[in-house]
Design a protein around this nucleic acid. Structure first.
Lengths: 238, 238
DNA sequence: CGCCAGGTTGATTTCGCTCAAGCAATGTGG
DNA sequence: CCACATTGCTTGAGCGAAATCAACCTGGCG
């Protein structure tokens, strides 16, 4: 299932240094160590990088592409906890917690991902405390977001939560058109949007229809137009 | 509102060392620094230690008592994100994330809490990377729990989630009676139980009634009896 | 004593789920 | 090139779990 082709990893160091707020503190020695031990692989959409319950072998640095982190039920239920963009590091949480993986990682767009084994990771953190602190900051930020997500899930309507999700994506991906509207492309399918909020895809359909009919958003396929960002912002409150 | 009485802090060091899995790595020098700078105060039920939105002044080590961490809405909605027991440290998350507090801390039972200012905290972490790594582990564990909580909140019924909460409390507080039943005392009110799950207190009432009528639990006031822990475990699935 | 906090119970409403059908785009094998 | 799966999404009808609204109960306390 996971089709890998080992690639030259000459530029891992570059990637870590320029596109990661955590790894950028590495020194020459550490970077060399990583160039020697890291394994870069190409993945196709649908490939699984690791499964919930797996022991942690190391961490995965997303060099390019897009990866989804999912948590599933013994029943069919699954939620999409986060989507990892280039520059993100996966698997550091269970490594730091000394737990097995509590979610699985699934490739959403063809990606190049660099694997750094746990031993190397620990060794580098040992010699370079700043890296550990950077991951502490990362974990602290994600924890804040996760707690907020819980709070919203029990507090806000599907509509308000979807509006919030759109706002977050707009902030990350949006660009302003000449007419003042914000536009961007959804990075994931509607089913995945539903999984991000923990609702059914039918509910997402209906909410999109509602927002459309009220002139708040126009969503065609994966193209999003927000004529008036302020009115979308208003939806985020109930 | 917050009634403080500065106490002798001779025994902070002791407390940190024996009852905290994070602070236990401190050396003599660090412990002395903390004894000199930390401020221990007594709080009464209902006192607020910090508010959502406040800048982070430092961290709070719970020496004794019980503290609730809450997140509130502009509307009446509030959720109880966690309850902090003796040995727990509050405020390290926003400090590490370099964010303002995203939740407020409210004293649930008369408590003694030691304040360690941000500057001292940073200075100690600087000289003692192991402390930072311990907090990384803590954050990683909490992040895993938070993600699971989100998943459960959108996946499981109120009944199943309440069963899970009881199981967690049982594991922490329960003791086995002669007849093989598990028993413990609820640490918080029913309203707070509801806030922990993000449901209305009426729903908790009804679920407690249901479980009672099916012989799965007996909950009188704050006393919980679980005649057959296995049957409670079954409730945790749907 | 009245009042309030904390909790229970009942009646009603509502939001999102479930179930079911259908549609458009894409692919695939005969 | 057609028949027909398959995938991703939409729409509708009906249902159900939990929220809402409201009444009431209990014990503690100024």
């Amino acid at each position: 299932m996971v089709k890998k082709r080992v690639a030259r990893n000459a530029s891992i160091a570059d990637s870590l240094f320029t596109s990661s707020p955590e790894w950028c503190v590495l020194n020459e020695v550490d970077l060399t160590t990583i160039e020697e031990t890291a394994i870069c692989s190409s993945y196709d959409t649908g490939d699984i990088i690791f499964y919930e319950g797996d022991e942690v072998q190391g961490v995965y640095f997303v060099k390019s592409g897009l990866v989804g982190v999912r948590k599933a039920d013994f029943e069919g239920n699954s939620t999409l906890l986060k989507i990892a963009n280039p520059g993100d590091t996966l698997g550091y949480r269970p490594l730091a917690a000394e737990q097995p993986h509590r979610a699985s990682a699934e490739v959403l767009k063809p990606s190049v991902i660099c694997f750094i084994d746990a031993k190397t990771m620990r060794q580098i953190v040992q010699g370079n405390p700043a890296l550990g602190l950077n991951f502490l900051k990362r974990a602290a930020l994600e924890l804040g977001d996760a707690e907020e997500k819980f709070h919203e899930s029990v507090t806000l309507s599907t509509r308000a939560r979807f509006a919030h999700l759109l706002i977050v994506m707009q902030d990350k991906l949006g660009h302003e058109a000449e007419d003042g509207s914000q536009q961007f492309t959804l990075p994931v399918s509607r089913s995945d949007l539903a999984d991000m909020l923990g609702v059914r895809r039918e509910s997402i359909s209906r909410v999109i229809h509602e927002l459309e009919s009220e002139g708040i958003t126009e969503i065609r396929e994966r193209n999003v137009v927000v004529p008036d960002p302020d009115s979308l912002m208003n939806e985020f409150h109930r």
